[in-house]
Design a protein around this nucleic acid. Structure first.
Lengths: 223, 223
DNA sequence: TGTACATCAGTGAACGCGCGTTCACTGATGTAC
DNA sequence: TGTACATCAGTGAACGCGCGTTCACTGATGTAC
């Protein structure tokens, strides 16, 4: 466990959106060609600063440079648009977690497995604090869709994989494995929520880092 | 630690609101006499089923049987009304926690201290699941007010008191005490959020109880 | 005990706003023959 | 290669809604003398 990885280390880039939102004023054909993607990207941009409440159908269409009724060619209603935006935000969170886990250089199978688990936990909290709009939007969707995201875009699946790794290298007794993902996720999610909307809101960086260390330590010891 | 306290054991009553909302159609004097309280109570009633979004200034006034502009005699704006309602919801959560802790009958100082900690954690999760509207409203307020709630209405203070008790009876090493309240609160708050808005939403009661047991066990072991 | 008057706590009309959604439409594209 | 036609993907006007807030007002209350 590194004593304190840089909290702002991984800058967050929206890699998964292929269409630039800034094409708004460019002359474009009547048939857009990729309007669904453009709308989702515009929604993600609005969600970044304003959270889920900013993902307003008319505002999104405006941002995309298109009449607001055009959105109905691609989404049944506002909820479906919001769900698509939320899914993208969730994927962005997963992306940061993967990136941080991949950057772990710790030597030795067991220490590395622990370091990876810690790195994705820290990534989770960092994402919530540095991108609160995206974080809130990721959990605001109605999510009645059956499939769910692909494993690599699913924070829960990433966490489960790390816990499986801990068991595989012998760092975690198998009898501790069941339910461990719920406990670990609850901890980082709860810490994130308290930092955003609870009594820990607006905490200075240093203090937040210290609390995060303590909390992650409790998880590790508890597993 | 009791193996599984009844999840629906403590029924939740809004004891702290003195004015009955159902006085709406009663003849009443022009000067209401207690309109602020009545408005907050109406807001709490609306929040119960609809969450913070249901605490709409006009709807609250309607529910209280008063013109919607009357609210401005008691609250500067909508945010202030919502904050007052949220504070009441938070106090209601605290009330359930106190009630459950008081009901613990475990013998022996250390086991009792642990049982009390567990009981308030379970109360927290139960409250979130059985009263999601209140739970969400409790954390929706803008909360720029300086004082904060009285200790007995403050879940965080109640939690800290339980941890202090653990140290006092020698059940928790003093060096584990700093930051413990953040970890414990993060855990139950995160579990609550995941059960409401996350991947654990709509889980059957039995499964939810099992997960709660596991999660509380991890906290206890981690401390 | 009565009266003038300031203050308090309500009322109701009005403002401006932005929203989600529907509708009939039109311009662009693709396909069959 | 050309043409008719179905389909797709946009447009713009309109609907109804409910919101937070302001304003001039009025009824009720309390207090000084």
């Amino acid at each position: 466990m590194t004593p304190s990885s840089n909290v702002d280390g991984g800058h967050i880039v929206l890699t998964s959106v292929p269409v630039d939102v800034n094409t708004v004023n460019m002359s474009r054909p009547y048939h857009h060609g990729n309007l669904r993607e453009t709308l989702v990207a515009a929604g993600v941009a609005l969600a970044r600063s304003g959270g889920p409440d900013a993902v307003v159908l008319r505002a999104v269409s405006r941002q995309a440079g298109v009449s607001h009724t055009a959105a109905y060619r691609h989404f049944a209603d506002h909820d479906e648009l919001l769900a698509a935006v939320g899914e993208r935000c969730m994927a962005e969170l997963a992306r940061l977690m993967r990136e941080r886990a991949a950057a772990v250089r710790t030597r030795g199978a067991a220490p590395r497995a622990w370091a990876r688990l810690e790195s994705i936990g820290r990534a989770y909290v960092d994402f919530a604090v540095t991108e609160p709009g995206w974080f809130r939007t990721a959990f605001a969707g109605v999510e009645t869709h059956g499939d769910g995201p692909a494993p690599e875009d699913n924070p829960f699946a990433l966490l489960s994989a790390r816990l499986d790794e801990l068991v595989a290298v012998g760092a975690l007794p198998p009898e501790r494995r069941p339910g461990a993902e719920h406990a670990a996720w609850s901890m980082v999610h709860g810490l994130s929520s308290l930092l955003l909307d609870g009594p820990l809101r607006g905490m200075p960086d240093a203090q937040r880092a210290a609390i995060t260390d303590t909390v992650l330590g409790v998880v590790r010891r508890g597993l």
